[in-house]
Design a protein around this nucleic acid. Structure first.
Lengths: 132, 132
DNA sequence: ATCGACCTTCCAGTGCACTGGAAGGTCAAG
DNA sequence: CTTGACCTTCCAGTGCACTGGAAGGTCGAT
């Protein structure tokens, strides 16, 4: 019983055939079975795996990090601790980015406020807009 | 009166001379004065600019985005309305990024919470560590 | 005078996550 | 039996933000 061809997997998972071959190259996907003609023949479990990869990416993990988690799982161990650590690190990074972005927002809002409240008449080329 | 050499700026700003030349190449830093021998001679304002760049990066902006904002800042002769529009656009983008980042943070926090509170005994490899 | 630390330019490479395209094989439909 | 969609491999390129290294110039100290 043959499974899915690469195009079907691509469509079902929302990626491309190119990407699937790439994932295989870099070890995120196991080498699939092949049809007699050499076509990749995927079992349904690949969709779970791709979903896992997508969730990891959505969480901002790199493919290398996702690969680590998958490798732990493939060795028959539960990667919970590893996942917890990775997510904790990501949280810290995101918190820092949030703080920086908020500060940047404030800075730009102030600049814009100045540009807005400046009397257009006094907004001479060399002057008012200068203090952006 | 000579200012800072590239190495001093690098040290003071926490980057490298390579990076400063790169920023100059891509237009984030203006061409600095040169000593008679051709050495870059930076005024103190470059540190402000580099700080701005670093903050923008920490907030997850690309150098291209940071460059846009800096270009607005540099265009003292730009009409106020134009400046306001551009800053408003950038504010909207930042607000969107802020919202996305906050959403991501929530998602990851929940994922991590699940991974943390999960009973390791029930976290079997077959589950693909369902937390992610 | 020469040493070593610094500077210059220019070109090339890195890592990530793909993406494009050539050259060719396979397969069901008309 | 040809057409066209799909598949294969392999090599090369993209965009971002640097980073490395060669080849050579400059400068202060010994």
């Amino acid at each position: 019983m043959s499974g899915m061809r690469i195009g079907e997997v691509a469509q079902a998972s929302g990626t491309t055939a190119k990407t699937l071959r790439y994932y295989e190259d870099v070890g995120l996907l196991p080498d699939p079975d092949r049809s007699p003609a050499g076509y990749r023949d995927y079992g349904p479990e690949v969709l779970d795996r791709l979903h896992f990869i997508r969730r990891g990416q959505a969480a901002g993990l790199t493919l290398a990090q996702i690969g680590q988690v998958l490798a732990i799982r493939d060795r028959g161990q539960a990667p919970c601790q590893h996942v917890t650590d990775l997510l904790g690190t990501r949280l810290a990074v995101i918190d820092r980015q949030l703080a920086e972005l908020a500060q940047l927002r404030t800075t730009i809002a102030i600049l814009r406020e100045h540009a807005t409240t400046g009397d257009p008449a006094t907004c001479s080329p060399e002057d008012v807009c200068r203090y952006l």
